[in-house]
Design a protein around this nucleic acid. Structure first.
Lengths: 224, 224
DNA sequence: TCTATTATTTTGAATAGTCAAAGTTTGAAT
DNA sequence: ATTCAAACTTTGACTATTCAAAATAATAGA
């Protein structure tokens, strides 16, 4: 009855899509299918099974949302994923932009015992290298989240701190790294012109960088 | 075409059985089935597939042996397994007797990149915590093995050093640990009487321990 | 040599997860 | 309202891995 790797991936995807869509309404099949990289037909089939198992609530033609049990499982997977990412970067020194893929596999292979050791070894981190919060071990209180907003919401002239990168694609992360847009970095918004559909920022004393709004929307910041 | 987890487990098992039977003759289906924990019928079915893939040589009613390609793969799996075990014990401090099971899963989830980092982090170890040799990375020369013989081959009065434990069962390993029979430990054979089917040894200044010959046969030693 | 036991292979069926393609709904736009 | 495109569901099929049980071959002992 232990949830399979596949099950865990479905739940994780639903959780993350639910976050993005900000809770209101169920996650449509199409999005889920795309996120996991399977055909919509498969998504429908699988989702019905998970609904029977009490992990998802499924409304035909509408979509799915996690049940409490499903959410608990999804958070456990995310916790594994992020602790592993942190370990790979901080201890083994793997490429910041590429650990996601590694963790995607390892999150299904690491036992509770090993996870706890990793967590302790790292000093119980609360965020992974990309700034995503690490869900606490079950029974260790709620996930404490820091208030962040996308770079697109900043006004010209504001100084803020990069808190989190929402994309997992190495391409995007490598771009971010090259331009100093890593969590903890302070930056100043030179210009945010909705008409231009772009945001220009300056990190330290290097040349300014301009991000399209799609990219800027994936950079979450704190401060001011 | 990347070999599946299942394939890797079959090859690993064949390799280890081949070692035990000391090369001569193919590994019979029954043993393979038992080692992997599947029914003999399944073993036959699968083995024929692997033979088609050029990983095994299969002689009906006789058994299987690894092809060069199969052996290479088996050694790669063993390398992963043993580096992971070493890491779990030396870095994370997991229980010496229980890391085998963990590594059994992780060996299929760790990428080449991560493996190399682990190997470097550990200082390129040549043996795992149970004394089993770690196959070198492909192209790094042959596996250099240390000459060892079972405790059952020692004469009364000999002093030798524990080199390797052949069993992976936590029960056996915990027993070994409790009695100081871990790789590197020096011991003196108090008595080895084939008639008694047992070997009595003394580690340091603690009370002597007696092992049945089945257990003593799984303790490999060097020296004298 | 004959037979009884043991090892191995074959056969038929099951499960998890997947796709392609055909069939349905829904909802927006005319 | 009617229609069309997009989203969703159904159906039939396929792969990998497994088991149980029946069929077959090999072997050791009398």
């Amino acid at each position: 009855m232990a949830p399979s790797t596949t099950t865990q991936n479905y739940l994780k995807a639903v959780y993350q899509l639910q976050q993005r869509q900000d809770g209101r309404g169920p996650v449509p099949m199409g999005q889920l299918a795309q996120a996991i990289g399977i055909t919509p037909g498969t998504a429908t089939t699988m989702v019905k099974r998970f609904a029977d198992d009490g992990l998802l609530d499924y409304t035909p033609r509408k979509g799915v949302r996690l049940t409490p049990r499903g959410r608990k499982l999804a958070l456990a997977v995310l916790r594994r994923h992020r602790i592993i990412e942190t370990f790979l970067v901080q201890v083994l020194g793997l490429d910041w932009a590429e650990v996601h893929e590694e963790a995607e596999v390892l999150e299904h292979a690491v036992s509770e015992k090993v996870l706890d050791k990793l967590d302790a070894y790292l000093g119980h981190p609360t965020a992974d290298p990309h700034g995503s919060p690490i869900p606490p071990a079950p029974g260790s209180g709620p996930m404490r989240t820091i208030e962040m907003r996308p770079l697109t919401s900043c006004e010209s002239g504001q100084s803020v701190t990069v808190g989190r990168l929402l994309d997992t694609l190495p391409r995007f992360l490598q771009f971010a790294e090259r331009n100093g847009l890593t969590p903890g970095t302070r930056l100043t918004v030179i210009d945010n012109d909705p008409a231009a559909d772009a945001v220009t920022v300056k990190v330290g004393r290097s040349a300014p960088t301009t991000l399209g709004s799609a990219a800027a929307g994936k950079v979450l910041v704190t401060g001011e």
